[in-house]
Design a protein around this nucleic acid. Structure first.
Lengths: 152, 152
DNA sequence: TTTATATTGGTAAATTTTTCTGTAAAAGTT
DNA sequence: AACTTTTACAGAAAAATTTACCAATATAAA
């Protein structure tokens, strides 16, 4: 982070908002020419400050309107965690999975097309993983805020 | 969704993985020429299937390595919810906020630079919002899986 | 079958990306 | 202080991509 000056940070701020901005536009915003902006972007990519560029889809339009956070605890902790993580990676419905501190072991974000699909996911996919103890679902009623940008 | 054929879905799948892919490359993958692929992308943008293109940064490199999920319940439900949501939108540390079903009202994803910063956030920013009842934090120990792509 | 509509392929202009060269300022060395 | 090295920027040219346009083809509807 200390290798980033204010110009770099401005570039990252813009690209977090809009990855499709042209170097020319960005240069104009920063009162620079194309060259330095272009080189800085390449440097930020090479140094992996920028991990990837992605298109964000409308989950309702692509028929994945149903979101749930699912808390999972393992019955015999240590020995089955690796296996659980392995299985989770294979499940397309799992958008995110975190190992968290506290009584619960894992927090999963699940995205599917309907409650029925969610039921099937829990019943026939998640529950099939060995040694799951507790399993608790919290349905998302409304997305109040969601941003992909860090406040740098 | 019914307005999307298999070609559209393939395009969306690719753009979710890599927004910087050129029309030429994409056309080659789909065994089409540039024109139809270009027009389809524009159509998907206009129809808002694609909401935005963003750069994803490395949270460790930009000094936001600490993530926590924070459960919030309101003391007097109905009347203070709007105000709470309003205040949440102003807080840069809040990456995501969902109104969820169940005992807890809101689930927040918080991203900061350190535990100290997290403490300050809870103590001096989140707690300052009126009529919060319960407040519970679950620290993320490890990110097992995180994808921005829907399985379409 | 005919008409209308949508989709594709091909081409060319406009724009952007990428590379290259030169200059100036800053930092480090003798 | 003089010299080298490094770094950041500007400008321009080359390469590649985006964008707009038109004709040809396929698809659906009348």
């Amino acid at each position: 982070m200390e290798t980033l000056d204010e110009i770099d940070k401005s570039i990252l701020r813009e690209l977090q908002k809009n990855a499709k901005i042209t170097t020319k536009e960005l240069a104009s915003k920063l009162n620079l020419t194309i060259s330095p902006v272009y080189e800085r972007i390449k440097r930020l990519e090479n140094m992996k400050f920028i991990k990837e560029y992605v298109a964000i889809l409308d989950k309702n339009l692509v028929n994945k309107p149903f979101t749930s956070y699912c808390q999972v605890s393992m019955r015999y902790h240590e020995e089955y965690i690796d296996k659980f993580e392995e299985e989770i990676l294979k499940l397309d419905e799992v958008q995110e999975c975190y190992h968290i501190a506290g009584q619960i072991d894992f927090l999963l974000k699940i995205n599917v097309g309907s409650i029925d699909e969610y039921h099937d996911f829990i019943r026939y996919k998640l529950s099939k993983i060995n040694n799951i103890g507790l399993l608790n679902s919290a349905f998302v009623l409304k997305e109040i805020k969601k941003t992909y940008a860090y406040n740098i």
